[in-house]
Design a protein around this nucleic acid. Sequence first.
RNA 1: GCCGGAGUGGCGGAACUGGCAUACGCGAUGGACUCAAAAUCCAUUGCCCUUCGGGGCGUGCGGGUUCGAAUCCCGCCUCCGGCACCA
Length: 831
Amino acid sequence: MDAGDGQSIYDPHAIERRWQEIWERERTWEVPNPGEPGFDDSKPKSYVLEMLPYPSGEPHVGHLKNYSIGDALAHFRRRNGHHVIHPMGYDAFGLPAENNAIKTGVHPREATEASIEAYREQFRAWGVSIDWSREISSHWPSYYRWTQWLFLRLYERGLAYRAEAPVQWCPVDQTVLANEQVIDGRCERCGSLVESRDLEQWFFKITEYADRLLADFDLLESWPEHVITMQRNWIGRSEGAEVTFSCEELGIDFPVFTTRPDTLFGATFFVLAPEHPDLERLAAGTGREDEVRAYIDAAARESVEERGDEGREKTGVPLGRTVTNPVNGERIPMFVADYVLMEYGTGALMAVPAHDARDHEFARRFGIEIREVVAGGEDVQAEPYVGDGPLVASGPFDGKDNREAYAEIVEWLSAEGKGGAAVNYRLRDWLLSRQRYWGCPIPIVYCERDGMVAVPDEQLPVELPEVEDYAPRGQSPLAAVADWVNTECPECGGPARRETDTMDTFVDSAWYFLRYLDPHNEELPFEPSVANFWMPVDNYIGGVEHAILHLMYARFFTKALADMGMLEVQEPFASLFTQGMITMGGAKMSSSKGNTVSAVATVERYGADTARAYVCFLAPPERGGDWIPEGVEGVHRFLVRLWRLAGEVAERTDASAGGGQAARDGAARELERKAHWAIDKVTHDIREFQLHTAIAAVMELVNDAYRLKDSLYDDPAGAATLRFATATAASLIFPFAPHLGSEVYESLTGDRVWETPWPQPDQSLLAREEFTLVVQVNGKRRDQLTVGADTPEDELLELARTSPNVIRHLDGKQVVKEIVVPGKLVNLVVR
RNA sequence: GCCGGAGUGGCGGAACUGGCAUACGCGAUGGACUCAAAAUCCAUUGCCCUUCGGGGCGUGCGGGUUCGAAUCCCGCCUCCGGCACCA
């Protein structure tokens, strides 16, 4: 370690190993639950959580960034006197491991556990301050036992149900997908075009919570506005009316949802979705059966993307039937058309071509009447008019403003029993069953006598059996495991078959943050009193890609648990921080492009401290940033500078000398002020997640120390200040470079930095003694003067007026206005 | 199409409530050290003009408010993200 000139070389690996061993041996980051030894009632709690990783291969720089941000915050909170819980786990179930198993024959458990080991090793090598006593993994029976338990609680409450529904099917992965997992009509995982199928599936009734999921945004402390907006759009609440049209020939009522009850008199046709269950009945006896059936079949064969393409021409087939418009008794023709979605509203709609673009297009194509009922458009025959105006051709409502008429028509409908106000959501129930192996088994059996029966709690977990063949065949590979599938009915003891579908992995991750709080509980998923102490998560940190799915599912579970009396909070995550993605050469990193940066290699080359500090420094953390190899060098150089400075200061100054009382002036005063400025700045910036400027502030402090150090060594007060400034730099960089921070701090103070309270700035040193007065003439800077902070306004003005540079610009003109901003500038306005 | 977000040097970016635009880092240039190089340290670095005092222009574009605008208002342009036949 000795370079021969009395200076030791910065050897990150040796330093990092040393501190990691101490933290591991002393279990430094373990935190007790209330009532356990070491728990201190007087401390506030802080739950700092990064999204748990999906273990695949080894961690990449995105993980490094995620956990570096979270760890910085965890350290900051601890040193500010909080009990900080900072746990780690693995989202271990899921398709990639299973697809890999199909390809290689390696059991998904084996591949996953090898990967978990790689992650664990990296987290240790990075020096992340994790409470390892709380580690969990979603594929452990001790974890998924409680996933199943929670499923059963939801089942009991009718929040988990089985139903046949048109679902989105991925033909490659041979499984259904949740609505949220279909991106642009393609499977989120494999990219293949998604098909529609009618299947019996398990759902969670998240729609029952739609209103609360919207309303409770108000309870959040700090979430990015755009994430809230995305969720709000996803839930897609629409207010409108339900209106019943009836087909008198067959005696069937067809309620429809509309957001425009004011245009009811303009309905000139009626459309059903191709999946509508009444189509067969409607077509029967009209002579159009074949044509209708052919259309339905064609629609079913189409991919979701093809069908959803907005640009394509409208298609449809007349049904040869009519329904009656309740407001005017008019009989209008019925059609089946694929622009109507079965999943939204009632799967049927009233078409008002004059005032809706889609209906307009369809009407033009099929030669249906386009009847204007809201005046104000140019020519509704050519272009639909969607704006406001007085009603026309609307019977008793003629001449009324359409918005006014809206309310009156809804009232009329409800008085007549023909409908009323209604709300609809874009949000669909959460389809959670998957026809795949590597997931949490659904704890249900089917008995010939008793039908669908829940597995009793004491028989949980329903363990995932071993299989030889993971290939999906349209049903779960579990269906082939005869001695697992065939079981006894818990009610009658008779023969029964197990549910062979497994759960979507998003179920596993919808509650994991609660299991961390009480990970060894064998009676319950968590003890409510313990959870109520730690919850909510104070800071949740992760990628924006989870802005909708995971976050909404976790919110839903939290609300359901609150309704069961197991939680007091309504929202799991008080503050959310979404980090931006690190790119390489401006492009997303991917192994196929060959532009990935290995976190492991970076840590091996520069040490964890450099790698961690760099990912926090390269850009504002919420924004993405491009990985620049020279930038890593720059941060490394800074850490080396701090290291060398500390070595020199430790050697040339005396720890006992100086104290804090000696009078400081000149350079010592300047450096002392800078140190307090840095404390203030870093404290503020960490709170604001401005980690890059926090690190920049420490860089400034170190730069100033370098600039001033040679003038400080000879004087005891100066030497003490230099020592203080260097130790302060170590203390402030500790959240980002914990090993170096610990090492330098200890060498200068003999103390462990993480046991040292976060420094407080001396307010009296933050106030400036003098400042640079900017003098402007007509808003243009003409001079700058260094003046005392307490200089009175009239003196500032006088200084400004007499500045030679200013006089040059005043020359003969008349000063019409003088503006003085204390502590900043003087502006003379001349004419 | 609808809903968000962002445009600042050669590059990543900074600027708390309108008050020195470009902190910090990268890159570049010059110098010191060295036989030399690397490393390190020091200096310079928005563009244009300059008699070296300084002057002009500069935060996507065009207007406006103000003593003063990167910041506020109006109208555009571009890029990124989300949703997208949701009645």
